[in-house]
Design a protein around this nucleic acid. Structure first.
Lengths: 197, 197
DNA sequence: CACGTTTGTTAGAACATCTAACGCAAGTAT
DNA sequence: ATACTTGCGTTAGATGTTCTAACAAACGTG
């Protein structure tokens, strides 16, 4: 890799750093290429040498967020010692990751950006997390056909609490979201099996 | 009410109708006052006689959506005959409401719009739904202190499935969202009590 | 050293929200 | 019925956005 591409990569990273700052502050829809350029001391159109469009930049942010979440999950999963412990640790890691940067979580799981379509790469990263959950439930003794449902339930219950919490729909209600989250996680993680209908 | 206010109300409704059309098509962030004006055959700034700002219009849409959801829930709740039946019917009504207009659901429970802050009126409408659930669970025999947790769990589990489904995160995964939703609802609606940890 | 690719610049098109000032039509009051 | 007042719609413009086009300068490469 020549010095040209090295520089290019460096500027791209700087742009993304400023973009993340804006996303964390005001959300993804408020992301402004002009504002980023102003922060970097260059003119607006210069950014188009590095990202073809605003959606292109957002796509990159989405993929980075997905990758980071997948790695965070994998690290937490690996740190656990029992299957149940791995799954619980994974859930806790997801919550910590979401609360650390709510807009980053919403960038992935919130309202899809208007014209934007998720790249196929993102589904691959999402299934990386799914595979993790599947491994956990099969390791815990779930049948192969049931592991799918367990993993799905794990995911929807975790997301049900997190998305509402992150979007601020719990403010004003006097209860502890952490307790609710923990209860929901333990409701789906073995040895407490989820209720069958 | 004089003819002046009658006309004003009529124009406001027409504006909101076009706004809902745009929201349903491209989402709330793509809502353009200029486009609405063009559709109505009037000039852009004329709309500012009826809504002080774009956020003001969105606030009105949010409140209308909340109100509509609350009324839909109350109707479904009243239609059931047993407490469990009422709760199940309410859940089904919520899902139907969400799938009928995904962007309307996301307008309420999706990523909060950038600068926009939810008016206090919206929390009142949200608690109207909560009260419904509380009534249902207490009527089903839950202790007063437990009804809160049950209602909350009902809400997070319903939302966990719906928000992922509506945002399109289930596409490509070969399973029936309706089945998962029904299973999640029955997992939290009496007589099947949610698992305690 | 000279060449060519890449980068940053300015200018400008097309779109957005929103304010200001003006004219006109409609409802209201005398 | 006539005069008054209120409110609506217009155009013009300020300020912001994304993004394209054409040009200048700098840098790595032969």
């Amino acid at each position: 890799m020549g010095p040209r591409e090295r520089y290019r990569e460096q500027v791209r990273d700087e742009i993304k750093a400023h973009a993340w700052e804006q996303v964390a502050t005001a959300g993804a829809t408020a992301l402004s290429l002009n504002a980023i350029a102003k922060q970097m001391g260059i003119s607006g159109p210069a950014l188009y040498r590095y990202f073809a469009s605003r959606d292109d930049l957002i796509t990159d942010l989405v993929l980075d967020a997905y990758r980071d979440l997948a790695e965070t999950c994998e690290a937490a999963y690996a740190a656990g010692d029992t299957p149940a412990g791995r799954l619980t640790a994974t859930a806790a890691a997801i919550r910590g990751w979401a609360l650390a940067a709510p807009h980053r979580y919403l960038l992935i799981y919130g309202t899809p950006v208007p014209g934007y379509a998720a790249p196929p790469e993102s589904t691959a990263l999402a299934s990386r997390i799914m595979r993790l959950l599947l491994d956990g439930f099969t390791a815990a003794g779930a049948a192969a056909t049931e592991a799918d449902e367990h993993a799905l339930r794990f995911w929807t219950r975790v997301h049900g609490v997190l998305s509402l919490e992150v979007a601020g729909h719990f403010t004003g209600m006097a209860f502890d979201p952490a307790r609710l989250f923990a209860a929901e996680v333990s409701s789906v993680v073995p040895p407490v099996s989820p209720p069958v209908r």
